[in-house]
């Protein structure tokens, strides 16, 4: 594993963030005063029990949700200041998202799924997009499945396709929400290997997972409990 220099650029900077959800039984604090930084080339695992605030944190990083207080800086942008439309465009270029249930669009082929963010964000020339998508699919090992519909792929293959899609606009930050939660252990290992490789290539990778044993793949493991950072432990290398 590569050691991440403390001089690397700060890709994620969460400063004193709280998130409160109003509920019929009163306000529910999902996050309370969370601070977190992730540098480029760093692979950080965010772990914790159900309800600990992992997904809320990821949603704040992706601009899917807004903090009640505090600041969320991702790829040099104060995410909470953007409106929905600018947020979508920023997200497309700056953040690659990977979900537990893959979330490929079922009517588009694998290659088309990968090209879609390029279309939305206008990256690459129109004629360059397919070769770029095929290169990404090659990188994740499923280029031969490029022209198939997602329904024809296994779970692992679909997740690889989702990772390729997350990289389509070459974002500096990759966020993954339980990306191995729906996969068998061998496939999950392969996916984690991919994330590790992305970090080595300079991307900041933050992955929410309920698995505590990441076999030393992540540089750091941040544990959340009741909406607070309970521990932030660097991997022993």
């Amino acid at each position: 594993m590569n050691i991440v220099s403390s001089n690397s650029a700060l890709a994620i900077d969460v400063r004193g963030v709280s998130k409160v959800y109003p509920t019929p039984s009163g306000d529910f604090p999902a996050l309370q005063g969370v601070d977190l930084t992730v540098r480029a080339g760093e692979f950080v695992a965010v772990v914790g029990r159900s309800g600990s605030g992992k997904t809320t944190l990821l949603n704040l990083l992706a601009g899917i949700d807004r903090p009640t207080s505090g600041e969320v800086w991702v790829a040099g942008t104060a995410v909470q200041t953007l409106g929905e439309s600018r947020l979508a465009a920023w997200r497309g270029r700056s953040v690659g998202l990977v979900f537990q249930f893959f979330q490929l669009l079922p009517t588009l082929t694998v290659a088309e799924n990968v090209m879609l963010p390029m279309d939305f964000c206008g990256v690459w020339g129109v004629r360059e997009r397919r070769p770029a998508a095929l290169a990404l699919l090659e990188q994740v090992g499923i280029v031969e499945q490029a022209d198939k519909l997602p329904a024809a792929l296994s779970g692992g293959q679909q997740q690889r396709a989702a990772i390729a899609r997350a990289l389509a606009t070459d974002p500096p930050v990759v966020l993954a929400d339980e990306p191995t939660g729906n996969l068998d252990s061998a496939t999950a290992d392969a996916i984690l290997e991919l994330f590790s490789g992305l970090a080595s290539a300079g991307k900041a990778v933050a992955m929410v997972t309920h698995e505590r044993d990441l076999s030393g793949r992540a540089h750091r493991t941040v544990t959340l409990a009741d909406g607070r950072v309970a521990s932030d432990v660097a991997a022993s290398l």
């Binding site: 992706a62 899917i64 929905e84 439309s85 979508a88 465009a89 997200r91 497309g92 270029r93 998202l97 979900f99 979330q103 669009l105 879609l116 963010p117 939305f120 964000c121 899609r165 997350a166 389509a168 606009t169």
Partner: peptide, 16 residues
């Protein structure tokens, strides 16, 4: 609506 969410998550604006 889930798919629309995914599209917005990968860069589609509400207008798109």
């Amino acid at each position: 609506r889930g798919e629309y969410g995914i599209m917005q998550a990968i860069g589609a604006t509400p207008g798109t």
